[in-house]
């Protein structure tokens, strides 16, 4: 069941901005309020907006449950893998092995109050990304599952 053309056009226009805002919250999780859970929820909201505008059938054909299931599992695996690499390097589970190494996200952070740099934080941004991927898959999957089991989908 799809909504009127006005709603569909508004959803089309809003969709990329909601996506960008969600990714911004995820990527800047170690600098600004927010993080993986919050940003993932915002991205899932964008998918739910599409479902509300175009109806379950049209969206479920493009965004399949299989793809979302894989996305969710991939996020959780990436999260655990990031924590496990620290064990392989001889440190404790969840040790921040990237911080201060100069690699990706590895710039040393300035102590005291400072505006912040995106290229700091070590494994924290990586874990934010992994959790964001997992939450976006999980929340949209919940909505798709619930719609597939109700009258609306038929």
């Amino acid at each position: 069941m799809r909504m009127s053309k006005v709603v569909r056009t508004a959803a089309d226009i809003l969709f990329p901005f909601v996506l960008i805002f969600g990714f911004y919250i995820v990527v800047h999780g170690h600098l600004t309020p927010g993080g993986g859970f919050q940003g993932g929820a915002v991205i899932a909201t964008a998918i739910v907006l599409l479902i509300a505008a175009y109806g379950y059938d049209a969206i479920a054909r493009r965004i399949t449950k299989d793809a979302l299931r894989n996305t969710e599992a991939l996020g959780l695996i990436a999260f655990i893998a990031t924590a496990l690499v620290a064990l392989a390097l001889g440190a404790g589970f969840f040790y921040n092995w990237l911080a201060g190494t100069g690699l990706l996200f590895g710039m040393p952070v300035g102590f005291g109050p400072n505006p912040g740099d995106l290229n700091t934080g070590g494994t924290i941004p990586l874990m934010n990304l992994a959790v964001g991927i997992e939450v976006l898959g999980a929340l949209s999957l919940i909505v798709l599952y619930m719609l597939s089991g109700t009258q609306e989908a038929a």
Binding site: N96, L98, D117, T120, G121, I124
Partner: peptide, 19 residues
């Protein structure tokens, strides 16, 4: 932890198991 945001530091480093 090497991160600027104390809340994220706590969530993803000090309390990683919780997350």
């Amino acid at each position: 932890t090497g991160g600027n945001n104390i809340v994220t530091d706590v969530v993803f480093d000090f309390r990683g198991f919780d997350t």
